[in-house]
């Protein structure tokens, strides 16, 4: 058990909390918030996979010079997460637009469960 594992647990629990929020509520805006939480958790987890104690920032600065392996944080997950964050904003915007549409046509953000599904769950 070390730092990596604790941060990984935090990231995973963020994912789990988001899943719970998605599952428990009926409010559309809350669903979007929950998906955002899951996304944050996954992003943290991905960046963490490239980290190790003593990893340096993946930028070549003045004092840096090497001919062997590079002591950087793995830059590939960082690049992936960079993409993911921006796409997250786009999808959130689209989801919010749809939520506003729903709220206007139904007058509320609450979503009612399909009667048959509700029967099964009760």
């Amino acid at each position: 058990m070390n730092v990596v594992h604790l941060v990984a647990i935090s990231a995973l629990s963020l994912f789990g909390i988001g899943l719970y929020g998605l599952w428990s509520g009926r409010n559309v805006l809350r669903w979007i918030l929950a998906v955002g939480l899951m996304e944050t958790g996954i992003n943290v987890f991905l960046v963490l996979t490239g980290w190790y104690p003593g990893a340096r920032v993946p930028i070549i600065t003045e004092s840096f010079s090497t001919s062997g392996p590079v002591p950087f944080l793995d830059p590939v997950p960082s690049a992936l997460v960079l993409t993911s964050i921006v796409i997250g904003l786009g999808t959130t915007t689209l989801a919010l637009a749809l939520a506003i549409l729903h709220a206007r046509s139904h007058g509320t953000l609450e979503c009612e469960a399909d009667p048959e599904t509700a029967e099964v769950l009760e």
């Binding site: 990596v4 963490l48 490239g50 070549i60 600065t61 840096f64 392996p69």
Partner: peptide
């Protein structure tokens, strides 16, 4: 997963994807 470094990341860091790695990497 938690080893941190990967060969792939190192290849990218050294800018050695399409060609051989340079002798020295620095400013």
């Amino acid at each position: 997963m938690f080893r941190g470094r990967s060969e792939l990341g190192d290849t990218f860091s050294r800018r050695a994807v399409r060609s051989d790695p340079p002798n020295r990497l620095g400013p």
